[in-house]
Design a protein around this nucleic acid. Structure first.
Lengths: 115, 115
DNA sequence: CGGAATCCCACAGGATACTG
DNA sequence: CAGTATCCTGTGGGATTCCG
């Protein structure tokens, strides 16, 4: 590792030490948000009921709530088609896609320690 | 990026897509665990009351609970000194230190999107 | 100082029914 | 199909007290 990279790394360490976790928890905390985001980020756009099935045993109400919150925070895009029966498609925004690295870190860590 | 690196990256993406988030949430979810871990990882060993102050307004009971849970999951080391008054020091285990990358990802993401 | 024991409650999360 | 609208419950988290 070069000297400049080393300095950059140290700087990132210092910065990360002060990162406000409560703010992050507001965005991606709770029982379902990471699950929903993982699906939309790695599997792409999904319709409501498809997402519902992939989430496991989440209820309609809860899925709606979580999706609304994620949408409000700019993590999920909601596209409604004017059709009958109705069709609504959910997908990850760029902001959500930028969490890909974090998900991979989590996965690598999980595999290393708990698999 | 070389071809082999590219394949590795693709493979990591596929793997991460199936990473069980509920299991991870069990380990580092909830209101306090990420905060506690962040302190111990980036600031090193802390005594109980020092940790308490750094956490903000966490109660003794809750801090004890969270530390016990983290210790049980191998994320926190607890060292008791046979002194009067008692002294207990908490520190991050290697398993917790391996979360450093994840914290930096979170921080970079937070800075990019919400700072 | 660093807890354990108790009691307590708001609210995250869930079950059910109804609807455009 | 993709939602609301209600009502309900469990538990994550908190306040207080006591203790070695």
């Amino acid at each position: 590792m070069s000297k400049i990279d080393d300095i950059t790394h140290q700087e990132r360490l210092v910065q990360a030490a002060g990162c406000p976790m409560p703010n992050i928890a507001k965005l991606i905390g709770g029982k379902w948000k990471l699950i929903i985001l993982q699906i939309l980020i790695f599997q792409g756009m999904k319709r409501f009921n498809a997402l519902r099935r992939l989430c496991g045993d989440i209820t309609q109400t809860m899925l709606t709530n979580q999706l609304r919150a994620l949408e409000k925070d700019g993590l999920v895009k909601r596209k409604v088609y004017a059709e009958v029966p109705p069709r609504v498609e959910y997908s990850a925004t760029q902001k959500a896609l930028d969490l890909t690295d974090m998900f991979m870190c989590m996965h690598d860590w999980y595999v290393k320690h708990d698999k």
